[in-house]
Write a protein that binds this DNA or RNA. Structure first.
Lengths: 93, 93
DNA sequence: TAGTTATTTAGAATTTTTTCTAAATAACTT
DNA sequence: AAGTTATTTAGAAAAAATTCTAAATAACTA
């Protein structure tokens, strides 16, 4: 894990757009790629970064690879930010 | 503003450490620098990135420049993440 | 005013990131 | 088995980020 990887993954606009697409549900690499004006190789690179950051996970089916949002890491990041923001008021309630 | 700048700023461990230091209260550039094994020029570079991302602001006093945490942008990021995480349940309550 | 202290800016070197093309896998279909 | 489709991996080129040294500002102090 590691916040560096996570924030780095979130820093790229293409990768954030991919995550937003996946909010609606799982998509294959090809379906994700069709939303962008880039080669499949580049999309695969971005998916790799998101996967390494644990922001998505894949499930293989037929000759497709489907990607899905992994929200658990998103929660960890939110916790870190909330810690930063203010002595964590949530923990007191 | 812009999430790219914000996440990029948060992606670097030195910059995250600076933000954590500033949680305790404002510090001068020199005081911040003394926590790291880097030149003042490099610290200044990182502070510039944090400033551009609106994660900190500065106030000048004597011949010091003090840096302070700006939590408002942190909240915006948290909102974006919470949107991503789940159709935003918070908005329904 | 001259010198000192705090910080930034400029420029260069190094590393990392992003993107492409071409080739390699992997799994299906005929 | 051979061909097709979906995706990744490798390698290279280009762009961006990180760090340094040296020089420039800015504001104080004697």
């Amino acid at each position: 894990m590691g916040f560096a990887e996570t924030f780095k993954a979130l820093a790229d606009p293409v990768r954030r757009e991919i995550l937003i697409l996946l909010k609606q549900g799982r998509l294959s690499a090809g379906e994700i790629g069709s939303h962008f004006d880039m080669t499949g190789a580049t999309i695969s690179y971005h998916l790799g970064i998101l996967k390494k950051a644990d922001l998505v996970f894949e499930t293989r089916e037929k000759n497709f690879i489907y990607y899905e949002l992994n929200t658990s890491v998103v929660e960890e990041v939110m916790l870190w930010l909330s810690e930063l923001k203010g002595g964590n008021e949530d923990a007191e309630k």
